[in-house]
């Protein structure tokens, strides 16, 4: 019942595998993470629809269902710790486990953000939004879904090139967020929405933007698993340059 990617990883491992049980456990962890990622990928359009159609029942259901995701991610984290402690993996195996730990956290946090969208749906219940705002919410939802889908699928197939493209896609989502904030100001100025709703909507935009950032992080970790290379953090680079300059003084 394993997917294509899973089979090829297993076959590869079988050829020269000295630690079959370790790699089996690792494959299982990867499969579970992919499952969690796929669930969140589905939850984003679902939360968007709940938000736009003001579906309180759906919101309640999704908020409750988040507990299962939390439980699954805690369990996965535990399994990673056991692998580290009992198997002491090295090289690419170590990268796999460390990256898995980071990715679990990113996925879990993204799931929380989708439930936050549902909570926002409860808070703006009964307020009509004008078509322009609704249109941008739909776009942000579509884009965030696409980003998370790419993140999940590139992790599933260990595709570094695909993972690298996620960062560029995120630029579009950031642009949408700015456009949305502008639209909120306009809508509020024309007194179509009150201040309370305006603030809630600004937070909604932030949720989508954050989901996109988590997808980018998952992409970076996937690249790290495959290539062993972490994209240079701009902040870290600036810090190093300043540090070097002050040494000269």
């Amino acid at each position: 019942m394993s997917n294509d990617a899973g089979i090829s990883v297993q076959e590869e491992a079988a050829e020269s595998d000295l630690r079959p049980s370790f790699h089996h456990a690792l494959d299982q962890v990867r499969a579970e993470i992919a499952k969690l990622g796929a669930t969140v990928t589905e939850n984003i359009p679902r939360a968007t629809e709940i938000l736009l159609s003001q579906d309180l029942e759906g919101a309640e259901y999704m908020i409750l269902a988040d507990d299962a995701i939390d439980a699954a991610s805690i369990d996965l984290e535990d399994r990673c710790y056991s692998l580290l402690a009992l198997q002491a993996p090295v090289a690419s195996d170590l990268r796999q486990v460390v990256a898995a730990l980071r990715i679990i956290a990113e996925v879990e946090r993204s799931a929380d953000l989708t439930t936050n969208l549902c909570k926002a749906a409860r808070r703006i219940y009964g307020h009509d939004l004008d078509p322009k705002l609704r249109g941008i919410i739909q776009k942000m939802g579509d884009q965030a879904t696409q980003l998370f889908k790419e993140a999940t699928e590139s992790y599933l197939s260990s595709d570094a090139a695909r993972a690298a493209a996620i960062d560029d896609m995120d630029g579009y989502l950031d642009g949408l967020q700015r456009e949305f904030v502008q639209a909120i100001f306009e809508s509020h100025q024309m007194t179509k929405i009150d201040l309370q709703v305006a603030v809630q909507l600004a937070i909604v935009a932030r949720f989508y933007e954050r989901i996109g950032d988590h997808a980018v992080n998952i992409g970076e970790r996937t690249q790290f698993v495959v290539t062993g290379w972490v994209r240079e953090q701009m902040g870290a680079v600036r810090h190093a340059t300043r540090q070097a300059a002050s040494d000269i003084d």
Partner: peptide
């Protein structure tokens, strides 16, 4: 296969 829908379907 290889898509998030495939993962959910298998699950």
């Amino acid at each position: 296969g290889g898509t998030h829908a495939g993962v959910l379907l298998d699950a």
